[in-house]
Every structure is written in C-alpha cells, then in structure tokens.
Simulated assay, not measured.
Amino acid sequence: MQKYLILLAGCPCTGKTYLVNQLQQQFKDSFVITPDEAKILYAESIGFNCKAEKEALEHKVWQFYYGVLQLYMDAGKRVIISEYPFSDKQKRQLSEFAEQYHYQVITIRLVADFDVIWQRRYQRDRSPERHLCHIMQHYHYGDTLENRNLADDLITKDQFYQVCQMRQYDQFVLGNLIQVDVTDFTKVDYSRLLNELKQIVKL
C-alpha cells in the first residue's frame, strides 16, 4: 500500500490554506497537520510575555508537530497533508520520517510576485481573523486588540523580503514537485492541479 505526504510549500500568503481545503475534498480520508495549528494551541494554553518567550514556545510547537506527524505515519495514514512556508530547516526531519515510514513525498510549491504577496501579507496581518499570537510579542488567551495597526510584532516589507530570501521559501522541494504560479488567484487552474496530482497519487 503506497502512502503519501503532500507538502504545500511557498511564501506566506500564496494560498496554501485554500488549497488544503481543495485537497481535503479530493482525498476524503486524508489527515491535515500544520505547525500554525500548534502555534495557536500553545499560545492559547500557555501564552507568552515577550519576544524571547514567544521564540522559546516555537521549539515546543515543532516538537508537537513532528511528534503528531510521526504518530500518524506510524499508524499508516495513507494521505497526510501539511502546509507551511517550508525551508531547509524542516527538510532533513521530513525526509527522514518519509524514508522511515515509507511515504512518497509530493511538494506543491506555490510561487508569486513578491509585491503581490506582500500586499496580501499586509492585509492579512491586520485582519480581525488573524490570530493575535502571530502579530504580538505578548499574548495570553482572551487578549484582544481592536486596532491591529498597533500590534507590536508586525513585519515590515523589508523584513518580509529578507526572510523569504534567506529561507528560500520559493525553492523548497522534497520528492515530486508541482509548481503553481498564484500571482493572480483568478487565473489558477485548480482543477488541472488536482488532476495532475491524481496522476501521481494512486489510491
């Protein structure tokens, strides 16, 4: 029985979460796990009082993420989907798990013009739907902030560019690669993408 790990990679704000929902409809018995879910879980259960504590909590996030991923691989879940701006920091561990538990890895890498994704990032960080733990240096369950422009951990355009370049989000690949340009969401042929994926995933 072939098993698959589908990684949705690419810079922030390239539409990975939307694509996860599309993939879940395609693969009804798939399991989805993302580091951001763990970030929110720990932020709400433990919280942090400063930038250093927030960064320290990040280690717990990845321990949790890799631990759950390994449990589901060990249980033999046939299709596991994960989305994140993956970089070489995660490649070794993901590759080792895939080899250990005999998973075929497929990377769907979403790419876009930088100025476009920056505008998306700017708007997303200021949206009421964005969890506060992502844009604050201090957070505990129940905290609110009416004016998101006052958040103290917002990223600037230059910082965002440097992070994307340094971590090479738009170059990550593990296993089979499918690349999609999402500069203009209205021009993305998701049906074609899903059909291409079905040629690889044999269930």
Rank of each mutant, 00 (worst) to 15 (best):
D115M: 09
F27N: 11
L132P: 05
D74A: 14
N149P: 07
E99L: 15
K89Q: 14
M73I: 02
Q179P: 10
V79T: 07
V188G: 04
Q26P: 08
Q159E: 12
N21P: 00
V180S: 02
I108T: 04
K54N: 07
G142A: 13
E44C: 09
L197V: 08
G175A: 00
Q63P: 00
L203T: 07
F27L: 11
I40N: 08
C164V: 00
I81L: 15
Y139H: 14
F114Y: 04
N147I: 06
S95P: 08
L177F: 02
F97M: 12
P128M: 09
Q63L: 10
M1N: 11
L7C: 01
C50V: 05
Q199G: 10
L57V: 05
S95L: 11
L145K: 07
L177R: 02
Q104P: 00
N149I: 04
K157E: 15
E44K: 11
R148V: 00
V105T: 00
V20C: 02
V68K: 03
F86P: 00
S30C: 13
Y72V: 04
H102W: 07
T14D: 01
P35E: 03
Y65T: 01
Y139M: 14
E196Y: 09
V173R: 14
E37W: 09
S82V: 02
T14N: 01
L150M: 13
Q179N: 09
K16F: 04
H138T: 12
P35H: 05
R148Q: 03
A151C: 06
A112I: 03
I200L: 12
M136P: 06
S45K: 15
Q123Y: 05
S87H: 01
H102N: 14
K77N: 15
S82M: 04
P128N: 05
Y84I: 01
G67W: 00
G10F: 02
Q26T: 09
E146V: 05
D29V: 15
R124K: 14
